[in-house]
Computed example of a mutant assay.
Amino acid sequence: MKRPFSFKSSVQFPIMIGWLILLIIPGILFVSDLSLFPWLALDSFAAETLFWITSTGTAPYGVATVLLVLLLGYQRLERSRFFSLFLAISLSMCATLGLNHYLKPYFSEARPNAVWLEQHYLLNTDSFYTLTKVERKEKMTTAVNRIEHANTELTLAPLIKQHWQHEVGFAFPSGHTLFAITLTIVASYYLLLAGNLWIPGMLFCWSIAIGFSRMLLGMHWSQDVLASTLIGGVIGLISLLVIHKTFPFIWSMSTKLVPQLIKKNQ
Rank of each mutant, 00 (worst) to 15 (best):
I210C: 06
A180Y: 06
K133F: 07
S207K: 01
Q162R: 12
L183S: 02
H149C: 07
L123G: 02
T141C: 10
G195A: 11
E148C: 09
I160P: 00
S127N: 06
V186A: 09
L193G: 01
K139P: 02
L192D: 08
M140S: 08
T155G: 07
E135K: 14
R146N: 14
T155R: 15
M215S: 04
A187G: 07
N124C: 09
E167W: 00
T152D: 13
K133L: 12
W206G: 09
F172V: 03
A194N: 11
W198P: 06
L178E: 05
Y189E: 07
A171Y: 03
N124T: 13
I147T: 05
G201F: 02
I199Q: 03
K139T: 09
E153P: 07
T155H: 13
R136N: 12
L203Y: 02
I185C: 11
I160D: 01
G175H: 03
F204R: 01
I147F: 00
I185S: 06
S188T: 14
Y129L: 09
T141H: 14
S213L: 05
N151Y: 10
F172P: 00
T141I: 03
Y190G: 04
S188G: 07
L183Q: 02
H176W: 02
W206V: 04
S127T: 13
W164V: 00
Y190H: 14
I210T: 04
C205E: 04
Y129T: 01
V186F: 04
Y190R: 05
E135N: 12
V186D: 03
L123H: 05
N151A: 14
N145H: 15
W164Q: 08
T132R: 09
T184C: 11
Y189A: 01
E153C: 10
A187H: 01
L193D: 01
T182K: 01
L123K: 05
K161V: 06
N145E: 13
L131R: 15
Q162W: 12
L193W: 08
T155D: 08
T125F: 07
I199S: 02
V134N: 07
V134G: 05
L203A: 09
I210G: 04
V186W: 00
I160E: 01
W164G: 06
A157E: 07
Y190T: 05
P158D: 02
L217V: 04
A143H: 06
A209M: 13
L178D: 03
P200D: 10
L193K: 13
W206S: 07
F170N: 12
T141E: 13
L193I: 12
E148M: 11
K139Y: 13
M140T: 13
T125D: 05
S213A: 15
L216T: 03
F128Y: 14
Q165G: 06
L216D: 01
L192Q: 14
E135W: 06
Q165S: 09
V186H: 01
K139G: 01
Q162V: 04
K161D: 10
V134K: 08
A143Y: 11
I147Y: 00
L178T: 06
H163N: 14
T141G: 14
M140A: 14
F204H: 04
A171P: 10
